[in-house]
Amino acid sequence: MVFGIRKRIQDHLVERRIRRSRLVTKDGHCNIEFGNVKYGNHFAFLVDFWTTFVEFRWRFVLFFFIASFTLSWFIFSLLWFWIARNNGDLTWQNPPSNHTPCMWNVYGLTTAFLFSLETQTTIGYGVRAVTPQCPGAVALIIIQTLIGALIHCFMCGIIVSKISLPKKRAKTISFSEMAVICPKKDFLCLMIRVANLRKTLMIGSQIYGKLLRTTVKPDGETIIMDQVNIEFMMDAGKDNLFFVCPLTLYHVIDKTSPFFEMAVDTLRKQEFELVVFLEGTAETTSSACQVRTSFIPQEIMWGYNFLPIISRSKEGKYRVDFSNFSKVVSVATAHCAYCFHNIMGHHLPSINAIDNVGFEVIDILE
């Protein structure tokens, strides 16, 4: 029991270390921070204030939403109170019985706040109203109405923009947790699976990858996060995917591939991160979005292939079985890309199908 608890703690620490070392998390967030940014560059965020507000977290947007309305109501209530005070409308000023106020039933700060709220929100209970006695009050009600309309438009636009952000559509695009390496049509390929959980299409979908690694040049220069292009394709090509059902995309491991020098026993000793991008336009909103995920060496299984998930029902409809989305089965595969191209029959032994592959299963396979 103690050994099991210790192993779970070690697995948890390894998982946290891997999560911190990623540039792109599995759900697409970039793990990067900026330091020593010049103070003057912060004004660029104020110039582009719309994008700044849209990128704020919901908690801050809601705070600004509440604060902007409440503060504007309070500021204008002070102005209404000041007008009423100058005209002698307040209760403690003891106005005469024949006195004509600037605003009916505004005789204190609380009633001035209520009048400001009713004016800006156009509630109009019919108890408080502006009289033609004070031209300043007429001008102030026009100013508050215009400013209130601007605040309404701005805050509603921010909320609608955040709700309709393309990255929300990206939440319904799912990648397989693991990538696999196995033969496909006389080629050794690295394959991943991607699914669109909505029935609406992603128009003009394109997928590509970047291999991030640290390289050392012959002159001794170390390049951190060196990027190498990784091309993915499917049987119908690599551009304008017909993304109506889950797709299995593959990268051919040939002499031009950075995976060519790797083997089954050296793959997990490598230090790299494979970032996969899928770009397309949502059919419903016509907004472009990008979906990202990443794979590290511990998440690439050599000698396995995905189980099929598309079948035909008795009614003749196509059926997608998502229970097999993360299932893999072992296949005979060469120990390295060089072996695959030059040594026939150099294969791995067969292993039974594995379900819900994760870090624990990888440890057992090792």
Rank of each mutant, 00 (worst) to 15 (best):
R17Y: 05
H12T: 15
I9Y: 08
F76I: 07
K26H: 06
E15R: 10
L71V: 12
R85T: 15
W82A: 15
S21P: 02
F60Y: 14
W80M: 05
I75K: 02
N36F: 02
L71G: 09
R16T: 15
L79K: 03
V47F: 00
V61L: 12
R17A: 13
L79Y: 02
E15L: 06
N31M: 02
I32L: 07
W82N: 15
V37Q: 09
I66L: 09
D27P: 07
W50T: 15
K7D: 12
K38C: 01
H29C: 05
R19P: 04
N36K: 11
T70W: 00
W82P: 12
V54F: 00
I9M: 11
V24T: 04
V14L: 08
H12K: 15
H42V: 06
L79M: 09
N36R: 11
V37T: 12
H12L: 15
G35R: 12
R85V: 11
E15W: 11
R16L: 15
S21W: 00
W82K: 13
V47E: 07
I83M: 09
F56A: 14
I75F: 05
V24S: 02
R57Y: 01
G88E: 06
V61K: 00
K7S: 08
H42E: 10
I75V: 03
R20T: 03
A44K: 13
D48H: 14
V14R: 03
E33I: 07
E15D: 15
K7R: 10
L79S: 00
I66D: 10
F53T: 14
W73Y: 11
H42A: 08
A67P: 02
V47L: 09
N31A: 06
G35N: 12
T25N: 07
L23M: 00
F49C: 12
R59F: 13
S21V: 00
S77R: 05
N41F: 13
V14F: 07
L71F: 02
G88H: 00
W58V: 04
F49K: 13
I75M: 03
L71M: 05
D48Q: 14
N87V: 04
F56S: 09
T51W: 03
G28C: 06
T52S: 15
W58G: 04
L79D: 06
S77D: 02
I32E: 03
K38W: 04
N87Y: 08
A44W: 09
D48W: 06
T51V: 13
V61W: 01
V37S: 04
N87F: 00
